[in-house]
Amino acid sequence: MNFSPALEARISKILGNYPEDRKRSAVIPLLLFIQDEVGAVTKEVVDEVSHRTGTPRVQVDEVVGFYSMLHRKPIGKYHVQVCTNVSCMLVGGTELYHHAAKKLGIGHKETAADGVFSLEEVECMGACSWAPAVQINYDFHHKVTPEKLDQLLDSLRKIQ
């Protein structure tokens, strides 16, 4: 597979981080960074990572199911992740998640038909003191109210 120059540079840097006979260590970082560019961990991605790290295909394949951020099917352009773990729950995280589901018309781990948004109810993301927290792709949003979320989602829909 061919990737962007930035990703290629990242991949070679990552591969350089581990001893010669330990390139399997690069499997998870490569899967995640490649998924970010390609959109999903497809069969081709697994083959590519297997090839580049010299790791048997089955050993690459078996980690995909383990890590919650890796997915075999594409998700929305904007992946909306609402935390409902305890610190967030205490200050409205659960209501916020339900609000997002209603607004987007999709449920947990679902992607809207137009592919713009997907939704996930997630575990603690390390923003507990600024709860309730939402992550859209990799961007953190703190102290999110339903109104703030509406504005955020509306503005993302406009620019997509």
Binding site: Y67, S68, L70, E123
Partner: peptide, 24 residues
């Protein structure tokens, strides 16, 4: 080195497995 979503990988021995490219 990046993880990819797994609380268990905070446990040090699972973290080491993950660092070696395996399930945590």
């Amino acid at each position: 080195h990046t993880g990819a979503g797994a609380y268990e990988c905070g446990e040090e021995s699972a973290l080491l497995e993950s660092l070696e490219g395996k399930r945590g």
